[in-house]
Simulated assay, not measured.
Amino acid sequence: MDKLAMTEAVMAAKADKGLTWETLAGEVGLNPVFVTAAALGQSSMPREYGERLAGALGLSGEVVDALAVCPMKGTDQTVPTDPLIYRFYEIMQVYGTSMKEVIHEKFGDGIMSAIDFTLDVDRQEDPKGDRVVVTMNGKFLPYKIW
């Protein structure tokens, strides 16, 4: 089973069972964003957790095997067209260079890890319309001087 077939199986089982990513993450014991990324084929999931996810969804060992495979990341060079995903692309276009300047000013020359990294999505109630709160937390990795 490849990543695409795995994702289709997970999404169908999730819909059939009426489960949320939050619920599945609780069953698996991992962050909802990470579980979703693995289910969508963007991250690998260690077998122990893949077995929990497949069990919660009533899926086969083939899904567990596919979840464990290291994915090919960053191969889509197309600008996203989904409005929600595009907004994040737009945020980076508008604020990316400013974020880079502020990070360099506070930490020095380096990058934020996307490996030693967590991402949380929360809802903040607001009388003017609920807010989406996205928290990215990555280890700072200074560039080596030699």
Rank of each mutant, 00 (worst) to 15 (best):
T7D: 00
V64Q: 10
M11I: 06
L40F: 09
F140V: 11
T23V: 07
G61F: 00
A114C: 07
M45A: 09
F34Q: 07
F107R: 09
M99Y: 13
L19T: 13
E125R: 03
G129L: 10
L119C: 13
P71H: 09
L24Y: 07
D16I: 10
R131A: 04
A37H: 09
M136Y: 07
L119Y: 03
P80H: 03
L24P: 06
K3Y: 01
G18Y: 07
P46V: 15
D82A: 11
P83F: 00
T23E: 08
G55R: 00
E22C: 01
V94M: 10
S43P: 06
M72R: 07
N31W: 00
L57P: 07
V133L: 15
D122K: 05
A68P: 04
M99P: 08
A66L: 12
T75V: 08
G50Q: 00
G41V: 05
R131G: 06
F88T: 03
Y49A: 15
K100S: 15
V94L: 15
S98N: 12
K128T: 01
K106A: 15
P80D: 15
M72P: 00
L67Y: 09
D16K: 14
K73D: 15
F140I: 11
R123Q: 10
G41L: 11
D109T: 12
A9T: 04
M92G: 12
I85T: 04
Q124P: 02
R87M: 14
A38Y: 09
D120W: 02
D116G: 00
T135V: 13
V133A: 11
D130V: 06
L67S: 12
G58I: 01
V134H: 13
A13V: 06
G61I: 01
G110F: 11
K73A: 06
M92A: 12
M136H: 05
T118N: 01
G58T: 02
A54I: 14
P127T: 00
S113T: 13
M45R: 13
V132P: 14
V64M: 07
G26V: 15
E105C: 13
F88V: 09
F140N: 11
P127L: 04
G50L: 06
A39D: 02
E62C: 10
V64G: 14
N137D: 12
P80Q: 09
T97H: 10
M6N: 04
V134D: 05
G110S: 11
N137E: 13
G18K: 03
Y95R: 10
N137R: 10
